[in-house]
């Protein structure tokens, strides 16, 4: 299993869509993609769309936490949307839900974005 990453930027928000499995191997790929975009554009917030993510281990937690640490110095935020129950279990265990906003689905995304913009 691998990962497919699609990225787009709108109003300083980086949208990251992940499809596949996020482990140590694929998180290295994802990190370099994110670093490239964050070097090219001014990013204040990141929204990880995990609707199509089938698996995540602690490497995935590390990458989300890493972006949070990167953005928090400029009052930026990281949000996670559409986690499947199995992915959400690792997320909850990690305690990440205390600092990362979790959105159930697209209908709540718009107001969440408005809240941070």
């Amino acid at each position: 299993m691998s990962i497919t990453v699609s990225l787009y930027v709108e109003n300083h928000v980086l949208y990251v869509n992940l499809n596949g499995e996020l482990d140590h191997h694929t998180s290295d790929q994802l990190r370099s993609r994110l670093n490239t975009v964050m070097g090219e554009s001014q990013i204040k917030h990141i929204v990880f769309n995990l609707k199509h993510l089938d698996f995540m281990d602690s490497s995935g937690i590390g990458i989300i936490l890493g972006r949070y640490n990167q953005l928090k110095s400029m009052n930026g935020t990281v949000m996670v949307i559409g986690m499947k129950p199995l992915v959400s279990k690792v997320f909850e265990l990690s305690g990440l839900s205390k600092i990362i906003k979790v959105i159930e689905d697209d209908s709540q995304l718009e107001s969440a974005i408005r809240g941070i913009a």
Binding site: R31, D57, S58, S59, I61, G62, L65, V90, L93, S94
Partner: peptide, 14 residues
């Protein structure tokens, strides 16, 4: 520095 979360053993244990 490699953004390891330090949660591996905890997750395995649980």
């Amino acid at each position: 520095e490699e953004e390891r979360s330090g949660l591996g053993f905890m997750i395995m244990e649980s």
